[in-house]
Design a protein around this nucleic acid. Structure first.
Lengths: 219, 219
DNA sequence: CCTACCGATCGGTAGG
DNA sequence: CCTACCGATCGGTAGG
């Protein structure tokens, strides 16, 4: 996957071209989170980086390639901030809650300039077709899958009641922060993130067993 | 508000210009729900309507005016499908539930070609500024406000426990269908809408009093 | 990585 | 409501 600009394959030190590409994508991700993936134009991106359009374009074969590379870069940033830190947390409800907390902090901390890259991209491409839409859908499925797995594990660990439907429950946990994002970013409701933290925690506790470890809102 | 193209004010029959404007906006709303409000270009819209760019443009002073008129038209359609039908339903939990059901049916019935116009517009404009963003935010505040009012009325009618925070509860009810929209439209999860119906109903019932009227999923 | 360029389309205007 | 046009920007290419 990716355009594999350089021929290197092992963990050699990145070439200058690789580093340029990386710095382009870091800016692209921020720009796309504000302007959208379609509004991410090669001209504006080149301007922002003080380089020529064609110089930038040499790193990507087409606009679609640039979009795909931007989605991949955003996915890596999401994994770094939300998914991977949760894997170090105790399996079961503590890990499920860590995923939620990480997601909310990643919004609160404005990891992307324009709020959640994937929330924006999801709604921008949800009625289109093609490779970019597929890449976004794959990323969201990964996230929903991670939540579902965390719920399943929490059931297996007897932290959550076995009677719940893990798919349905995961979809709830998936939905609440998206709504909070909307409240926070568009409606400028300063309480939205706090409210949704409370809602998710209460929802988890409503289906927790007596042997479930305590979880609480991070301070 | 609006560009008020004609000088008529009362309920006279709409002029030919008014009717043209209306038919333009019906197409604009569908196009914007797919391509986004920024991707709604005057050229594409004129093509779709088999009229000239400048002929179409004569109805609006600028692209921003076209976007504002499109938001207003979408708002009217939303009110017609979701808000107004709920006002005929018994106040309290039945009305709250009707708002949710109407929203989900409006997604299921593909009232807009590309899914919910406002979900797309919200995430497209949530990190911009200007009149278009403000119009979208106002529409979403109206919707969240309608939900909050319905919750407050349900508390007053003693359908819901007085201990709940109506703002927080409304934000939950607001969030769940947005997540379901994502599952339905992007992830093509056919169970998403059914799951979220069940989730919302269960959530309402979890804070219902003994005197709350029965509500159930419409068939 | 650059300059210099391509045809197409953008939002918008003049004039009828 | 139209034709005919404007400068700016789009994605992309040639050639170095």
């Amino acid at each position: 996957m990716g355009t594999a600009a350089s021929g290197r394959s092992k963990a050699e030190s990145p070439s200058k071209g690789d580093r340029t590409r990386e710095s382009i994508l870091r800016v692209a991700v921020d720009l796309a989170s504000v302007e959208g993936l379609e509004g991410l134009t090669i001209g504006r991106l080149a301007d922002e980086l003080s380089m020529s359009k064609s110089g930038l374009f040499a790193h990507f074969g087409s606009k679609e390639d640039l979009q795909l590379a931007t989605v991949a870069a955003a996915r890596e940033i999401f994994a770094e901030h939300v998914l991977r830190p949760a894997l170090t947390v105790e399996a079961g409800v503590p890990r499920l809650w860590a995923l939620c907390e990480n997601w909310i902090q990643y919004i609160e901390g404005k990891v992307f300039k324009g709020g959640c890259f994937f929330a924006a991209a999801s709604f921008e491409f949800d009625s289109r077709s093609g490779p970019v839409r597929d890449a976004i859908a794959a990323a969201m499925k990964e996230w929903l899958g991670a939540l579902t797995r965390a719920v399943d594990v929490a059931i297996r660990e007897k932290h959550l009641k076995a009677s719940i439907d893990s798919h349905q429950f995961a979809l709830e946990i998936y939905s609440l922060p998206i709504g909070a994002h909307c409240g926070f970013q568009l409606l400028e409701d300063k309480k939205a993130l706090k409210h949704i933290r409370t809602s998710i925690l209460a929802r988890i506790q409503s289906v927790a067993t007596a042997t479930c470890p305590q979880v609480k809102i991070r301070r």
